[in-house]
Design a protein around this nucleic acid. Sequence first.
RNA 1: GGUCCAUUCGUCUAGUGGUUAGGACGUCAGGUUUUCAUCCUGGUAACAGGGGUUCGAUUCCCCUAUGGACUACCA
Length: 503
Amino acid sequence: MERVRVRFAPSPTGPLHIGGVRTALYNYLFAKKHNGTFILRIEDTDQVRFVEGAEEYIMESLAWCGIKIDEGIREGGKYGPYRQSDRKDIYRQYADVLIDKGDAYYAFDTSNDLDQLRIEAEKTGNTFIYNATVRNMLNNSESMPESEWRKKLDSGEPYVIRYKMPQNEEFHFDDVIRGHIVVNTDTLDDKVLFKSDGMPTYHLANIVDDHLMEITHVIRGEEWLPSLPLHFMLYRSFEWKPPVFAHLPLLLKPDGKGKLSKRDGDRMGFPVFPLFWPYGETAKGYREEGYYPEAFVNILAFLGWNPGTEQEIFSMDELIKAFSIERVGKSGSRFDPEKAKWFNHQYLQKRTDNQLAIEFREILRTKGHHVDIGELEDLVKLVKERVSFVNEIWEQTDFFFVAPEIYDSEAVRKRWKEDSPALLLGLRSELSKLDHFTPDVTEPVIKGWIEKMGYNTGSVMNAFRLVLVGSLRGPHIFDIISWIGKEETLRRIDRGIAVLSGK
RNA sequence: GGUCCAUUCGUCUAGUGGUUAGGACGUCAGGUUUUCAUCCUGGUAACAGGGGUUCGAUUCCCCUAUGGACUACCA
């Protein structure tokens, strides 16, 4: 195979949606699998929809995911520039080539005229299609004598350049994911290739750039499938070899119907964007929600692709090795927030205690607690397998840092009995005899004491947990007292007895 | 409306002209845990419907239904 070159070509019209990130990821995986080149091209031919900050957002998102750009607006490359607005001057000549060949023509119809025609067609239940059947009745260089359209051109009248779609032709083409597709050209229209503002439309710019940049494989979203025949047609007109096309299925919303949108994220409490979007209407991001990029990438990779084995956890390198376009599914995937959490849980378990302690220390700092990293490692060890995100560690360990102020009333009702104060007093005096508070010391002593006294283990331990934690949750009780220490343990027993027996 | 695309457990999916239709998430039950969670074990649950083709269809073909994308001088 020739050297693989793929591109991810987003429009900077706002934050990059996770569907877009997945498209970028699949392009990247495919490129790297084949030792190829991954290109970032910015498609900003629509000046009106340009959004400040979007380019940076796209690049930061890819970087966070570990997707490295080989050629792009920042990286450069010998096929540059990589921003279409910077390539503005090269498109017109290609539109002219098509005109000279008779495959395109000038059209002078105004947007208003066309809107009107569409409305009228709709009234009779039809769809207005600008193509061979009506071309000669409209305002263009096909319907009028050359002298007339030359005059219009010379007088500076606004015009667009339209592709001249052939009439009644069975057009065959292939997509790696969809297979063989046949359409009749009569259902297609004479798409605008060059706008009256001097900019090309997506269709022209895309084909020209893909050709000039020697793109070998176009992997993009399914929303482009309807314009695929046009794109093949353009390659034919230019007599260029088309790249291989692969149209990815869409990402669907978790419930109900339709494709995933920002609203779904808001409604269901999960992000639809990789990173926080700070401009205008802000949006949550996976990074800020505590997802690891490795997990995020793994989740995305499995939305529409699978390796055909039972392995689910894949590093980027493993994904590159295992990836193939042929194993991408045909139907849209619903995003499942629950499974996304599970993935992050898996990745969190693989982190070392030291890594987690460092990450958790940041959260602790915002809460005003400063703790030695070694102690945090001990703490993290106790709860890591219970959490899916670093910020959940706090929810699991808050009572290590702050003695309970209030005691869960349900837990009190269930576990605080008449004899609880007496039992805890006994326990207290046993504990106060000990110098070392590690579990290997405290546990046998206390268990032995309970047995010797003939107490019920649950009665003692649950009451003990209640005064230590404030509720019935948390890790092994002897691990808790080991970490908070003797002094604090005794203090919590005293306070618990004082508060709870006074009720 | 038109064009194109899709359809296996609730979700992500594997899979085959003859399988007990497999896995994961979720869920349920049991076990472990003095608590909660984790964890372990087990269970639940699917080939959209109807016609063909065939000895036999989840698998191939057609129709219907449902869903989706597109239908701009947006990408």
